[in-house]
């Protein structure tokens, strides 16, 4: 049995570092929606490719947006 070829992980670059965005706004729901799943859960860093600091900023922004009913805590639709 031949070993499966080793997977080449594609290195993702944090979109916020690329765009040089320092402040993640909780009011920008269009942007934040990219970082939640269709169930409303926050996507993991290995999925989003964000750096540590920006992942944390995104998570805080999403939680703020949830408090103000801009984003859902859960969405059972679908």
């Amino acid at each position: 049995m031949a070993k499966p070829p080793p997977r080449k992980p594609k290195k993702k670059v944090c979109v916020f570092c690329q765009e040089k965005i320092s402040y993640v706004d909780y009011k920008d729901t269009g942007l934040l929606r990219k970082f939640i799943s269709d169930r409303g859960k926050i996507r993991a860093r290995r999925v989003t490719g964000n750096c540590t600091q920006h992942q944390r900023d995104v998570a805080t922004a999403i939680k703020n947006a949830r408090e103000m009913a801009l984003l859902p805590y859960t969405s059972t639709a679908r």
Binding site: K27, A69, L70, Y73, S75
Partner: peptide, 15 residues
């Protein structure tokens, strides 16, 4: 609103 607050489905936002 993404979810109901005080049984209300929408709200007037101001910043």
């Amino acid at each position: 609103l993404s979810y109901e607050i005080q049984k209300k489905g929408e709200g007037v936002y101001a910043v």
